[in-house]
């Protein structure tokens, strides 16, 4: 039962009630199943409720209605089976890399020696060997985001939730991070839900792209990505890749143009 890390999202609605202001319907009737070990990417215009859905899955906020379950277990609060990588880097500035990576373990009550050993492993996995005792402000944006990913992985969650993890990075760094995420996922076989507003990122990384409509967020389409794995950056130049990106772009172009500006190549 705990073995199955399938994520079940059933009939989730979310309306933000605000005193003195009109309420905001952020999500409507979200039904989505992410299979154990599957990599799903969610794209949609900004404000379409993607972060809200991820926070509900993580247990940071309750849904207005509907249920979240991992395997056969309903979840309503944060737990060790899920870990989140936030968009803006949320590292503790007064802690070193090794302390930050071990933070989730420390919260879980693990002894120092043990959690440092684990933290070291994930620091290595994230390619940050030698930076164990640096503080976040001494690292580049890309390195900080790797620490964020390492911190989430260190608690060994079954489900990894990533909210636009590479949005703040420059194009080159982002490509490197995408490749690294893929190789880590290849080895660790987690269930992954990734939010991004980069369609090419979604197609490159995932098994399936879920397209959200603008507010209230609803699932407009689910596009399976059957590009062969393992994938490298070469894939991005293949015809199949470009066609998939184009297909998804057409689905959200109108809303995206209204809400934000981004370019596809």
């Amino acid at each position: 039962m705990t073995d199955d890390a399938t994520l079940h999202i059933r009939g989730v609605n979310k309306t933000f009630l605000r005193t003195g202001k009109p309420s905001v319907e952020a999500l409507r009737d979200i039904d989505l199943t992410v299979k154990d070990g599957e990599f799903v990417a969610i794209v949609g215009a900004s404000g379409s409720g993607k972060s809200t859905l991820l926070r509900i899955i993580d247990g940071l906020m309750p849904a207005s209605s509907g249920t979240i379950a991992v395997g056969s277990r309903a979840v309503s609060r944060p737990g060790p089976d899920r870990a989140m990588v936030f968009q803006n880097d949320s590292l503790l500035p007064w802690k070193t890399v090794i302390e930050n990576v071990g933070y989730g373990l420390a919260i879980g009550g693990m002894a120092r020696a043990e959690r440092e050993a684990i933290a070291r492993r994930f620091i290595e996995l994230a390619g940050l060997r030698g930076f164990e005792h640096h503080y976040p402000h001494q690292l580049s944006g890309g390195m900080r985001q790797r620490v964020n990913v390492a911190r989430a992985l260190a608690v060994d969650p079954r489900i990894l939730l990533l909210d636009e993890p590479f949005a703040a990075l420059d194009a080159q760094t982002r490509e490197i991070m995408q490749a690294e995420l893929l190789s880590i996922w290849g080895r660790q076989k987690k269930t992954v839900v990734l939010i991004t507003h980069q369609i090419d990122e979604a197609v490159f990384l995932s098994d399936r792209v879920v397209v959200f409509s603008a507010r209230p967020g609803q699932i407009r389409a689910e596009i399976p990505i059957d590009l062969p794995r393992p994938r490298d950056l070469e894939v991005k130049r293949s015809l199949a890749f470009v066609q998939l990106v184009d297909e998804i772009w057409k689905l959200i172009e109108h809303e995206v143009r209204l809400g934000m500006s981004l370019a596809v190549d």
């Binding site: 247990g59 940071l60 944060p78 949320s90 007064w94 919260i107």
Partner: peptide
């Protein structure tokens, strides 16, 4: 205190007291 830091702590299932000692107070 940065909301993001508190969210990260909560995401790891930190108790109120743990949030206070590891995030808010420092």
């Amino acid at each position: 205190t940065d909301r993001g830091l508190i969210d990260a702590a909560r995401s790891f299932n930190a108790s109120k007291w743990q949030i206070f000692t590891t995030v808010t107070l420092p």
